[in-house]
Amino acid sequence: MTTAPIIRAQGLTKRFGDFTAVDDLTIEVVPGSIFAFLGANGSGKSTTIRMLIGLLQPTAGTIEVDGIDVLHQPRRVRDHIGYMGQRVSLYQGLSLRENVEFYAGLYGLSGAELERRWGALRERFSLGEAEADKTEDLPTGIRQRAGLALSTLHQPRVLFLDEPTAGVDVHSRGLFWELIQEEAEAGVTVFVTTHFLEEVEYCDWVAFIDAGRLIANTAPETLRRDYSDGYGISIDLPDAERPRARAVLENLATVRSTPTGFQLAAGALTPELLEGLDRIVAGARAEIRIEQTPMTDVFRRVLDAQEKPS
């Protein structure tokens, strides 16, 4: 990828007295990607985000967000970013519409421009019915969507979302991720934290912080390859088809015969392997099942590897 990173943090360190909360962290985020930033409670995630958005001065290191030197121009970066915290920052006692007007005022958005922008968001985020309600009366899922809508009101180039889906039900989480993916497809860069590890599958990149240090920084697929048994693939197909299938498969993965067909083990699902499998399945009406290690288990292994260095 030749595109210059839109977020670049180098040697980022934050100490509170004797305690090092973030220790020499270096990350780069590709524009228009969804970047998952994960870690245990107390691992330094929120401290890192607060530094990236210019709310906290690092002890050492440099940060650049959308071409802006965050350390020296922390206020300027705020026009370029949207932020949504663990507790959505909507003012209680105000209706959603009043919150919109309040935030729009902060960004200098008003009149026809505000109506156009909010009108589009209200429609896309299905917030029309909630507009007149006091924000404390809104169900969690709608409140989260409203928080996301407000954080994109000024059309920021980068969104920082700190546990946006915590405590949100599975249906609302699904809707929320569809919106996040749409933002990314429209070119917005999304920097997101979560404890729902299966949500990493919706992201392009994953960084994992443990005790202030980065212990993984890679594509989700690479992490799965390195910290799981890869993929288990079982294929059921008629006897007559098996010799032809075996000939195709043996070049692609480790193949074991089973009473009903084959069992394959593969570290990664390469395009060649997928197409090889599809040729067998399509030709013979075979049945195929692909088992992948859940991300939750992948991360348990990542953490175990930290505790027991080989």
Binding site: D169, H171, P271, L277, V281, I288, I290
Partner: peptide, 20 residues
């Protein structure tokens, strides 16, 4: 699409189906 596969209903689909 390089490969299409039918798979068993999982917890995600179960809860989504209940919600819908």
């Amino acid at each position: 699409v390089r490969l299409a596969e039918a798979t068993a209903i999982d917890m995600e689909s179960t809860l989504l189906a209940l919600a819908r």
